[in-house]
Simulated scan of single mutants.
Amino acid sequence: MTYKLVWYGGAAMLLLAVSIVVSLTIGSSGISVRDVWGILLHQLPLFSKEAGSYSAGEIAIVTQVRLSRVLLAVLVGACLALAGTGFQGVLRNPLADPYTLGVASGSSVGAAFIILFGLQAAMGMWTIPIVAFATGMATLLGVFWLANHKGVIHMETLILSGVILQSFLGAFVSFMVSMSDGIVNQILFWLMGSLAMRGWDHVYMLIPFLLIGLPLLLAYGRPLNLFVLGERHAAHLGIHVEQTKLIVLIGSTLLTAAAVSVSGVIGFVGLVVPHLIRLLVGPDYRLITPLSAIGGGIFVLWADTVARIALTPKEIPLGVVTALIGAPFFAYLLHRRKKGQGGAL
């Protein structure tokens, strides 16, 4: 296991580093590759005293716009992929994703409400993220309340509760969109997901959630491996089943709500990335969890890069790009799995 982690982890980190380097040099502002890296080097203490022939606008584009957006894409992707790993492990379903329990719809309700009534300035730039995060967590509590029966949460009931709340809240969002008239584009743009107009404050907001969520899910790698055998077998092997489910689901939902509150609704990341990692390295969650975090960052980074440059000067919503990439890929995985099981899913 250690050998696999070092090998695959090293390769993934190298791919992530290359992706960051390439993404930073791509943009519509006309700044050359040499100037981009010259500007970045001049931000380091060792080179800061050297004179540079860069304008204030060029420095701002590279350091305040591109660099923050690249890092934010990596963080959002890592959060969503980690959350997908947690949901797939607990629900024992490779088709599960961070939105299975309706967290995205809950966050969307809060964001749409704020935009609809023009309250974006109530708490400054943090208004929509804070409210979206709060409504996403409230949705999770509602799902747990519906699924709880005498202190026990059954997986089938949990998923069904998530589907019920997701449908209800999705209808509520659609209702607010129909009532929004002149600001309908703002709501729809948030629902389609984007990293535009985001900055370093949003990066700093996501870092604590990732620093909490990643170690948490890593710590539950072995219990998630035993969940594959079934809850009864896992309990016989010393796993506190209900406690494990609760902690992993709460941690995964925290990661989802944090990412969605910053970037809007971005689908297929938590669905495709853990599934692909599982195909590459096997079913061991001690490997799947860290590699999914890196893979999610790479996936969203490249999707956001495509969103920025594909139709310059216009920008495609990030959620549209991830869906266009993720849906056909996942359809291929389903077809492959169906053939392997003789036509049965």
Rank of each mutant, 00 (worst) to 15 (best):
126 W>I: 11
126 W>H: 10
126 W>L: 15
126 W>P: 08
126 W>T: 10
127 T>R: 10
127 T>M: 05
128 I>S: 04
128 I>V: 15
129 P>T: 03
129 P>W: 07
129 P>C: 11
129 P>K: 02
130 I>Y: 07
130 I>S: 14
130 I>K: 00
131 V>A: 07
131 V>N: 00
131 V>L: 08
131 V>P: 01
131 V>F: 03
131 V>Q: 00
132 A>F: 03
132 A>V: 02
133 F>G: 07
133 F>N: 02
133 F>R: 04
134 A>S: 10
134 A>G: 09
135 T>Q: 03
135 T>H: 05
135 T>W: 00
136 G>M: 07
136 G>T: 12
136 G>A: 11
136 G>W: 02
137 M>P: 00
137 M>Y: 07
137 M>R: 06
137 M>I: 14
137 M>D: 02
137 M>E: 09
138 A>K: 01
138 A>D: 02
138 A>C: 07
139 T>R: 01
139 T>F: 05
139 T>P: 05
139 T>M: 08
139 T>H: 02
140 L>I: 11
140 L>G: 04
140 L>Y: 08
140 L>W: 04
140 L>K: 03
140 L>A: 06
141 L>P: 00
141 L>K: 05
142 G>H: 02
143 V>R: 02
143 V>N: 01
143 V>Q: 01
144 F>V: 01
144 F>P: 00
144 F>Q: 05
144 F>L: 08
145 W>L: 13
145 W>Y: 13
145 W>P: 01
145 W>F: 12
145 W>H: 08
146 L>F: 11
146 L>V: 11
146 L>C: 08
146 L>Y: 03
146 L>E: 07
146 L>K: 12
147 A>S: 13
148 N>M: 06
148 N>V: 00
149 H>I: 09
149 H>V: 14
150 K>Q: 15
150 K>N: 15
151 G>Q: 13
151 G>N: 09
151 G>A: 02
151 G>T: 02
152 V>I: 15
152 V>K: 15
153 I>C: 09
153 I>W: 12
153 I>F: 10
153 I>K: 04
154 H>W: 02
154 H>L: 10
155 M>D: 11
155 M>N: 13
155 M>L: 15
156 E>L: 15
156 E>F: 06
157 T>Y: 09
157 T>C: 00
157 T>P: 01
157 T>S: 15
157 T>E: 10
158 L>C: 03
158 L>D: 04
159 I>G: 12
159 I>E: 13
159 I>C: 12
160 L>F: 07
160 L>T: 06
160 L>V: 05
160 L>R: 07
160 L>N: 05
161 S>V: 11
161 S>H: 08
161 S>N: 12
162 G>F: 02
163 V>E: 07
163 V>F: 13
164 I>R: 11
164 I>C: 12
164 I>D: 05
164 I>L: 14
165 L>N: 01
165 L>F: 14
165 L>Y: 07
166 Q>H: 13
166 Q>I: 03
166 Q>M: 14
166 Q>A: 15
166 Q>K: 13
